[in-house]
Amino acid sequence: MKRILVDQNDITQVAVDEVPSEPLADGQARLRIARFALTANNVTYAATGFVIGYWHFFPSGITGQGIVPVWGFAEVVETRSDLVTVGERLYGFYPLAEELVIAPTKEGEAVILDAAPHRAKLPPVYNRYVRSAPKSATQEGLQSLLQPLLATSYLLSDWLQDNSFFDAEQVVVGSASSKTGLGLCKFLAELSPRPVRVVGLTSSGNKPFVAAEAGCDAVMSYDDIETLEKCPSVYVDMAGNAEVKARLHSHLGDQLRHSSAVGTSHWDQFQPKQKLAGPKPQFFFAPSQIEKRRADWGPGEIERRISAAWKRIAADAESWLTLREHAGLEAAVPVYTALAKGQAAPGDGHVVVI
């Protein structure tokens, strides 16, 4: 089995590795990974691998080398479990590799959980695998790309509403050209009447893209942070760029009601310990909002709303997303490297087929 290893001390360094496929024990199933997406979200998984725990999902067994998780589809090719059958297609959280062995347990008719011991204490949302009806390659590609990112976007929008926008008048979305940032802007733009002013913050090169697609009230480049209106604000940071964060905190000061850290795609400009004006940034962890809403609304309702929401935003994806398909696991190496180095175009959506 081939897999891609990432240097945990320098996440731009990757290598293709090959190990024997492990034999199945009773109750296990082997999934052949067929299609997955690569986005800046995967860079965040690597950058926060120790802090958040993403390296623990698919341990490599090699000190200093990690396997980055991806979202996509796999097919059951061998099973010693009565809960799945050979040929079934499952959507979920996979290693950057050719296969995964899971220990299926049942969660309703459409969902199974991986009960592998090393995943028992990890967030359940990442351990769920959904049975998939037949889909086209494009449909699988869009789901792999957009469902996890737009789910986070929707949960951010829901969380902001749940907290009455922290009594702010404007929400500043950092790295608004990222798919998660763009999705948040789009979900906030749906609210009518709009409760807050939405400002998309991005690079000067990506400003036209965000202005055309995000539905923001205003789009500003990082160069213009000091001209941002000083009023009660929330900052949602998708990139983790320390310089941008420091400038924005300094400019808004006490007017900043809340600062949320979501992603670290600008991992090379990330400083976990910063002395900042205004409130201390707090990490937004999407599974926590899912668990809160499960308690508020009952099992299944937040999942239903997320599903409807991401499909609604994805319905016009052809206008703002170019699907780019790559063949073979090895093809993931240059795609991941470009994402880790910040060299990927915001309108491209990369899907690897193996």
Score class of each variant (00 low, 15 high):
316 D>H: 09
307 S>Y: 08
328 G>M: 09
296 D>C: 04
318 E>P: 06
318 E>K: 13
303 E>D: 07
301 E>M: 13
328 G>W: 06
306 I>A: 01
322 T>Q: 11
331 A>Q: 05
295 A>F: 04
331 A>H: 07
319 S>L: 13
312 R>A: 15
312 R>C: 13
328 G>N: 07
329 L>K: 09
294 R>K: 09
294 R>V: 09
326 H>N: 06
312 R>M: 14
305 R>C: 04
302 I>L: 04
291 E>M: 07
305 R>H: 05
293 R>T: 02
309 A>H: 00
326 H>F: 12
301 E>Y: 08
327 A>K: 15
315 A>G: 08
323 L>W: 01
291 E>A: 11
323 L>I: 11
310 W>C: 03
292 K>P: 01
313 I>P: 02
309 A>S: 04
315 A>D: 07
310 W>A: 03
296 D>W: 02
318 E>G: 14
302 I>P: 00
302 I>G: 02
298 G>A: 02
322 T>R: 09
298 G>Y: 00
294 R>I: 07
324 R>S: 14
314 A>F: 02
322 T>V: 15
329 L>S: 10
328 G>F: 08
323 L>C: 06
313 I>A: 05
306 I>F: 00
299 P>A: 15
306 I>H: 01
327 A>L: 15
297 W>P: 01
311 K>C: 13
314 A>Y: 00
300 G>A: 05
304 R>M: 05
316 D>K: 12
312 R>N: 13
323 L>Q: 04
328 G>C: 09
322 T>N: 12
301 E>C: 09
313 I>Y: 02
327 A>Y: 11
318 E>M: 08
305 R>T: 04
296 D>L: 06
299 P>H: 14
299 P>Y: 10
322 T>C: 12
291 E>Y: 02
323 L>D: 03
306 I>G: 00
328 G>A: 10
331 A>R: 07
310 W>T: 02
331 A>G: 05
302 I>Q: 03
327 A>F: 12
312 R>S: 15
307 S>T: 15
309 A>Y: 00
317 A>I: 05
318 E>V: 13
305 R>P: 02
310 W>R: 04
305 R>D: 03
322 T>P: 07
312 R>V: 10
307 S>G: 14
325 E>R: 13
317 A>M: 06
297 W>A: 09
312 R>D: 12
305 R>G: 04
296 D>Y: 04
298 G>V: 00
324 R>P: 07
311 K>D: 06
327 A>P: 13
302 I>S: 01
301 E>K: 14
313 I>H: 04
295 A>R: 10
321 L>F: 03
315 A>W: 01
294 R>C: 06
309 A>V: 01
321 L>I: 08
296 D>E: 12
315 A>T: 05
312 R>H: 12
331 A>S: 15
